[in-house]
Amino acid sequence: MDKVRASAAKAVADIPSGATLAVGGFGLCGIPSVLIGALLDAGTDDLEVVSNNAGVDDWGLGLLLRAGRLRRMVASYVGENKEFARQYLAGELEVELTPQGTLAERMRAGGCGIPAFFTATGVGTQVADGGLPWKYAADGTVVIASPAKQTQVFDGRTYVLERAIVADFALVRAWKGDRHGNLVFKDAARNFNPLAAMSGRTCVAEVEQLVEPGEIDPNEVHLPGVYVHRLVELTPEQAADKRIEKRTMR
């Protein structure tokens, strides 16, 4: 039951090139930066990543993006990452833009064994009708566009069918975890982390505080250990290394 690994490098060593990853975090809040760094050092490439966004140019998933390690992104927005936008518009990266709540539910559904669900979000737009540019050519023409999705009327209202997301691996960050994998997240850093963890067939979590089983009150557990397969304890320096996505000065 002890799921702790000696290092981040060992925890991600078997993630192969071409894998699909669900990655927690929102902007730079709650991102598994140490695991991302280990994956960068490992040279793993051709990755499809499911995450709310792709970090910034010099931190988080932006490091993998800048190194050309990502083949495809399923995300809600481009955000502050200029390299993300450049690669997408230059035809170097396939991007499936997904409404934020829909993305969250797609990951949660994948973790719960629900293959698909209906939602009103996106009805009457290209999200449902198809035609969203997923990948451009270098000349700006669309190479891959989103397909039309099934719609159905319930109680007089139209809904669109969205497929669940099940990733090969999940990378998440928690404030506290025990050796059995039970996790507690801190404030807003919970964000997409539990959902990403649920959607991964193998979940790797980095934790700022590692405690023994029984030290976390069951009522305080945000994500049960059944969803978590590996844990990495961060050093105090790693835990404190948290970047600010955008500074606003008076």
Rank of each mutant, 00 (worst) to 15 (best):
E245S: 12
A145P: 10
R247E: 02
G101E: 03
F185Y: 12
K176H: 01
Q152F: 15
G60C: 08
V211N: 12
F192P: 02
Q126V: 05
G130V: 11
G140Y: 09
I216Q: 02
L234I: 05
T235F: 00
V204S: 03
V232R: 02
D168L: 09
A164S: 15
Y159T: 12
P32N: 08
Q209F: 07
V34Q: 07
P218A: 00
R201K: 12
E48L: 07
A174R: 11
E233D: 01
L231F: 01
Q100C: 00
C203T: 12
L64Q: 05
G181E: 09
K10H: 14
T20I: 11
A174E: 06
L103Q: 09
V153C: 14
L103A: 02
S146K: 06
E245I: 03
A11C: 12
V160Q: 02
G79W: 06
V153T: 15
V221N: 11
L234C: 07
K176M: 09
K82I: 01
K176L: 12
K3G: 04
R163A: 05
T121A: 11
L195C: 00
Q150Y: 13
F117V: 01
E233V: 05
K135N: 07
G79P: 02
G214R: 10
W175N: 11
L171H: 05
A75V: 15
S199L: 04
V95L: 11
V211G: 12
Q209A: 01
E220F: 09
V78K: 08
R69I: 15
V142E: 00
H180A: 15
T125I: 13
E215V: 08
A104D: 08
I244G: 02
G200I: 03
L47I: 10
K242R: 15
D168R: 06
G177R: 04
P194E: 09
L132V: 10
G68D: 11
A138K: 14
I216L: 13
G110K: 02
L97V: 13
R173D: 13
T119R: 03
D41Y: 07
M198W: 06
L132M: 09
P133C: 05
F117S: 02
V127K: 07
V143M: 08
H229D: 14
K3D: 04
I144Y: 02
G62V: 02
M73A: 14
I31M: 13
R108L: 13
N53C: 11
A38T: 05
D178P: 10
G124A: 07
Y77F: 11
L39S: 08
D2E: 14
L39A: 09
V143N: 00
G131W: 00
G60F: 11
G122S: 09
D155V: 15
A120Q: 08
R86I: 00
A128R: 03
G111F: 06
V123Q: 09
D178M: 07
G18W: 13
Q150P: 14
S76N: 09
V172M: 04
Q238L: 15
A188E: 13
V211S: 08
D45H: 08
A240L: 03
L195M: 00
A239S: 14
V123T: 14
Q152M: 10
S199H: 06
L103D: 07
L47N: 06
P16I: 01
F84Q: 01
D45M: 03
E162Q: 08
W59D: 14
Y77M: 11
G91S: 09
L223E: 10
